[in-house]
Amino acid sequence: MLTLVGEDRPGIVARVTSALTEVGCNLGEASMIRLGSSFTIMLMVACPSPGAELEQILTPVAAELHLRLHLDPAGGGLHRHLVPNIQVRVMGADRAGIVAAVTGALARTGFNILELESDVAGDPERPVYIMNIQGCSERTLETLREAVAGLGAEGIAVDIAPVETLIG
């Protein structure tokens, strides 16, 4: 698992992936997104050479692009996808503790988060925190809704809906 973070600028993805391709690396699942003014890359790389060598190849590239580099041996491989069956949408006046409150309530039901993305919207004077979660749960919708029911009183709107994946 390759992690790269740094000030956003055009060409980061192209430069990094070219360097990986040149040494025969194969790229798998990835999440690449701009957060704030930073660009973040988390990328699964299958490499013919051991990790140390990969670090050697990437260190100059990361330095050139002013990116922080981190490498972790990752298990897995391709075709290990889990399909989410529950979607959770959260909105509330921005304040500390919303994520912990919502995910804590979900975690106590055994909810497994597959994806979480959040943003701050609204006026700068009255920011609104918006979070969308997709995940897996074996509990009923009623159980999950009950688990987050108390959050309404704290000004956090939580909407839990099933995700029906159509296979055709």
């Binding site: 391709l78 075709h79 996808h81 399909v83 989410p84 995700v163 029906e164 994946t165 159509l166 296979i167 055709g168």
Partner: peptide
Amino acid sequence: IGREGCLSVPDYT
């Protein structure tokens, strides 16, 4: 918007 998969596109939704 809804999530879809396909018999002709295995392991992707």
